[in-house]
Computed example of a mutant assay.
Amino acid sequence: MIYLLAFFLPPLALIFYGKIFQAIFNAVLWVVGIFFVLLGGWILWAIAVGHAIFVIHGSRADARTQKIVDAIKSGK
């Protein structure tokens, strides 16, 4: 569900994940990208969407890794 939100509203998806500075950067890219989509281009919009998906995926991977590290530490 978060990836769907990242596709349609990338800055909002990043805010939900607590990535405020990335959301601000992404909002600038997204707004400029939307402006250029209206003029016939789509590259910046695609970069904004890709950035949001990449950051969300990385955040989820970090959480999984931290869970594994915590399980290993508690097993000692």
Rank of each mutant, 00 (worst) to 15 (best):
F36A: 02
Y3G: 04
V32R: 00
L44A: 14
G41F: 06
F16I: 02
A13Y: 01
A61C: 09
D70M: 10
V49A: 03
G41R: 04
Y17E: 13
A23F: 11
F25P: 02
I20N: 15
T65P: 05
W45M: 06
G40H: 05
I47A: 12
L14Q: 04
W42D: 08
G58M: 10
L14D: 01
W42P: 06
I53C: 13
I20W: 15
D70T: 09
V69I: 15
I34C: 14
L29A: 08
F7A: 10
H51F: 15
W42I: 09
A6K: 00
G40I: 03
I68N: 11
A63L: 12
G18M: 14
S59V: 02
Q22W: 11
I53R: 03
F7S: 05
I72F: 03
F35S: 00
A52Q: 07
A6R: 01
V55F: 01
V28K: 08
V49G: 01
F21N: 14
W42A: 11
L44H: 05
I68W: 09
A27Y: 10
G33D: 04
A46P: 04
V32D: 00
F21R: 15
L38W: 15
V37E: 06
F8Y: 09
L44C: 12
G41Q: 13
I34F: 11
S59I: 06
L14A: 02
F35T: 05
A61G: 09
K67D: 13
I43W: 07
I20R: 15
A63R: 12
A23W: 09
I2R: 00
I2D: 00
G40E: 09
G75R: 13
K76Y: 03
F54H: 14
I72E: 08
R64A: 15
W42M: 06
L4V: 08
A48W: 06
V28N: 07
A63W: 08
G33R: 00
I34Q: 10
G18H: 13
I68E: 10
S74W: 03
L14S: 06
I47V: 14
T65Q: 12
A27G: 13
I72D: 08
F8E: 03
F7K: 07
I20P: 10
L12N: 05
F54E: 12
L44G: 10
L44M: 15
F54W: 15
Y17F: 14
A23E: 08
G58K: 10
L4N: 06
I2L: 02
I68T: 11
M1I: 03
I2E: 02
V31H: 01
D62V: 09
D70F: 07
H51R: 14
I24Q: 08
G18V: 11
K76S: 05
V31W: 01
S74M: 08
Q22G: 07
L14I: 07
S74A: 12
I34V: 14
V49T: 05
I53Q: 12
V31E: 02
P11V: 07
L9S: 03
L14F: 10
V49K: 01
A46Y: 02
I47H: 05
Y3E: 08
I53Y: 03
I72Q: 04
V32A: 10
L38S: 15
F25G: 13
A63F: 07
I68Q: 11
F25Q: 14
I24L: 15
